[in-house]
Each structure stands twice: as C-alpha cells, then as structure tokens.
Amino acid sequence: MCDHNHNDPNHVCTCSDNPLVPQVCKVIKITAETPDVKTFRIQTLDGKKPFAPMPGQLAMISLLGVGEAMFSITAQGEDWIESSIKRTGMLTDALHEMTEGQTIAVRGPYGNHFPVDDCKGKDILFIGGGIGLAPVRSFIRYAIEHREDYGHLDVLYGSRSSADLVFKDDLFENWPKVEDLDVHLTIDRPEEGWNGSVAFVPAFLEQKAFDPAGKKVVLCGPPIMIKFCLQSLLKMGFSKENVITTLEMRMKCGIGKCGRCNIGSKYVCLDGPVFTMSELDELPDEK
C-alpha cells in the first residue's frame, strides 16, 4: 500500500500537509465513451500530473460548489490522469455538463493498488462489466507498458449493448495489436450489426473455459456480476487467492478517517479497494 511518506522525493501527491484539502486542476479533454459515461483528462493548472497513481488507485474528484466523490483512475500519461465517470448522481450530473478547460479539484492517490508484483510472470485474465472496466483498464495499460513482465493476457468485457462498451478505441484498435493479448467482447442482448458474442459475462466466461494454471484474474463490475463470475471461476478450478477485485463503497474522506467505508475492521479507501476473494471471505459479508 502506498503509505504516503511525503519525504520520499519521487512520491508525488496532493496531500500537502493536509490530505483533505484538494488541489485545483483543470479538465483538458472530455471524451464521451457512451451516452452515460465520459472520460475526463485532468491536469494541474501549471500543466503537470497532480499525482502518479499506481494501477487501481483512486482519486477524490470534486467540482467546486457541487460536491466530492471517489473515482478510479483509469489511465495516466506523461502529464495527465484520466478518470471515467458514469452519470448516476448529483455530482456526476454536474460533471457531465462540464466543458473542457473548466476547473476541478483533485486529491489523492488513495487506496492500495493492484498487486502488480505478485502477478509478474503469470497470465492475467481481466474481466470487466459495464463501467467496471475503468479500474481494470489501469492495470491493463500497466501490463501493456511492462509487457515482458507478464504472460498471456486476456481481456473479457461485457456490457448491456454495443453502444455501452467503454474505451472502444482500446478494445477494437489498440489492444488487439498488442502481442499475445486476446480481447473477448460480449453484450447482453442481440443487436443487428453486432456479430460478436451475445451473453451475460459469467456465461460468456464459462464458454471460454480458461485454464486456471498459472493465471490470475482481475474482476470488476456490478456486484451481481462479481458474484456469478466468481462461481463460474471456482467451477473452472480457479482458487480464491488468484481472483482479485476492487470494491465500491460510499466514501467521503478517502483517507481512512470518516469511518463510513468500513467492511468489518477494514476500510475500503485505506486497506482496499483492491482485495483478493480470500481476503473478502475473512471480512463479514455486508452486502
């Protein structure tokens, strides 16, 4: 877990000495992924990255005057970070009406991150459902940048309809070109003009019948999908320590203080959001 020692020179974060005070940044690019998901590219006012997150880490994004909420950082570049946000509430409505160049306030990075080291040398199966692909994508991009550290990569992704597929340019152009990486797409209901698979993600997963040997699974999506995917994975012989997921909880402070994102004695914003399924079994199952 990035435990935030501020005297480590290459550790960049917005904590200053007060982690609850965000840093004012600007949105330099907004790409509309689907009718209700937009990706916001964020940069500090002087053109730098607000912080250098590890894959799977979160950022507390606030629109001044509206509110603040926690979002996963789906990608990062030389001088920007990106977050994909689905329109579900008061703050996300306001975010979706933003135009490029407007100011936004950001603080982070928060939470632990995907176990990039103990996945080294292993095949990885990335499973995403709907907007759940956003946090997983941060690890996919990391794996592609360090392609030689990882074995065979599979991206299995499903959503309600073809219009609801996020990161279409990655799915159809960039990722298929990466060597030894297969992309498997599915949608829930048949559509004309769609000749790919039509099935729910758990069923689609069982059709693919992946061989669990030496393979780690990174799984994120709506709770119902995680529940059924886990059953299919166990049927295929995967063990729970190899299935990694990232959780969603109501978060207000993001730094493990305000007490609301606890599952048992663990705080999702501090000890999570990334947990292996075996770790989750030890926690009380608050649904």
Binding site: H4, D17, N18, P19, L20, V21, I255, G256, K257, Y267
Partner: peptide
C-alpha cells in the same frame, strides 16, 4: 485514528 491510521489529518 487522526494522527496515525494511514494519513495525518492536518486539522
């Protein structure tokens, strides 16, 4: 909680 658990709360 406020001084050790993960971060130091400035306030």
């Amino acid at each position: 909680v406020f001084l050790e658990q993960g971060y130091k709360d400035g306030f």
